[in-house]
Design a protein around this nucleic acid. Structure first.
Lengths: 244, 244
DNA sequence: GCGGCGACTTGATCCAAGTCACTGTCACGC
DNA sequence: GCGTGACAGTGACTTGGATCAAGTCGCCGC
């Protein structure tokens, strides 16, 4: 995932209209004047560095954030001090959707590498969504997707199913963003993966090792190569296949 | 949970304006003319009976549904034929939010008892949401809540934490609806509870028994009496308490 | 190039919850 | 009443993944 120059020169270069994430992000389906109006309220922020927080639990909710470059993890810390990783967020994905209801952030968002975001002040975004049908429906679509994705994750699946689903999910997201779906760098540590999948880090290590032994993948530290995507998909079929 | 008369006489009696769920459901915060416009697009449907499907996986998405009376469970069936219960839905809650993105229903919705719903044709609702700020923000709030709720459920919690959270969650939802927060009837079987919480039905039985022994609750079949709500809340604190 | 530290792997043991098998209980039809 | 079948509870056992305890590897600072 590439990083951006620190300065905000070249307004045009950064505009939604020419952003490579246009079709995944809020501008999807918008054209000319509508796109410009959206562009006007976007505040580009960053670059932030690994370990920087974009927001924290309890912060007043003022804006949604679209990841522009880099990646984020969202997480909470429970009353016993245990961390719970809620998700990883790639460019084009929205952060902060869960904060709309209570008006305060319910989770923390932390940069996993050098990252930039587009801040979308919520009041203004909501007004604009009132006026632009396409924007409103895209916001609803993205929220709907979040609801559906979270529901899938909740099942009682084995360590293998979970990791296979994690890898194929990442693969698909990289593909959509124009990166290789079979070779990529993980932005997150084993500990974060384990926490996200509700496994012990040791279990993640062991399943990675098993997958390598079975010639499904090769892994070298954070570099992953998916050798047999179809078979990986079969492994986690139960997590995604839904029928009547 | 009360049932409604079969006929749809008394349009006024059924109007959003006088609905007891107004403050939980879409009309929240709307007044006079706006409320009437929402009312105009609502199609009251039912009564449906235990075991009836409101929609099924793959059905074209045309409308959101607000539960009016009774209760629903939403579930999927995976490629191996295993059922996965995604949630239980009480009056005032919305069904079908996950279908907006793909335009098709991703889960099945089944009545657990005699139930009625308000159908909200999505195109019209979206148009209206464009024109009424309050409606738009309430839809966003309800979707946001769904995102946050699902995230909480996903953690790696013990059988006790899960069941305690389930019971206190139901308690709170009954309270909001004007029912007793300490004495209620479960609309769902042990099997459904177990499936929802990702436990075996035997485990649910055993934890119910343990809770009874510890004087936290009494259970007789589907009649539950919460004796020590504070202690139940402590049990599942980790599932809900979130801090920086 | 050495020391130290954090990230990861590997192996040995443990335990919460699942599975299996059986029993009890209620509801409904005949 | 008496079967039948769905649902619920209980005990014995099995097991996947957690936990505990050493390692190994790579990297950064000095």
């Amino acid at each position: 995932m590439s990083t951006l120059p620190a300065d905000v020169s070249g307004r045009l270069r950064e505009a939604c209209a020419v952003c490579s994430l246009k079709e995944l992000c809020l501008p999807r389906g918008l054209n000319g004047p509508d796109l410009e109006r959206l562009d006007d309220l976007v505040e580009r922020q960053g670059p932030f560095h690994e370990g920087d927080h974009l927001f924290r639990v309890g912060d007043r909710f003022q804006a949604l954030f679209a990841v522009r470059a880099g990646s984020y993890k969202s997480y909470t810390v429970d009353s016993e001090g245990r961390e719970h990783v809620l998700g990883f967020h790639l460019p084009g994905e929205l952060l902060g959707l869960d904060a709309i209801y209570p008006g305060r952030h319910l989770c923390n968002a932390l940069a996993l590498d050098t990252a930039t975001v587009c801040a979308l002040p919520y009041e203004q975004l909501s007004d604009l969504a009132g006026r632009i049908n396409g924007l409103r429906s895209q916001i609803m679509r993205l929220m709907s997707k979040d609801i559906a994705d979270n529901a899938t994750l909740a099942g009682d699946f084995t360590a293998e199913e979970r990791l296979a689903a994690f890898l194929t999910g990442l693969s698909e997201r990289f593909r959509q963003r124009g990166y290789s779906p079979t070779e990529f760098q993980l932005a997150m540590s084993r500990r974060d993966i384990a926490n996200y999948l509700r496994l012990a880090t040791e279990t993640v290590s062991r399943v990675f090792a098993r997958f390598e032994k079975d010639r499904l993948i090769t892994v070298d530290r954070r570099a992953v190569h998916l050798l047999d995507l179809p078979r990986l998909r079969t492994l986690c079929a139960a997590m995604n296949d839904r029928q009547s």
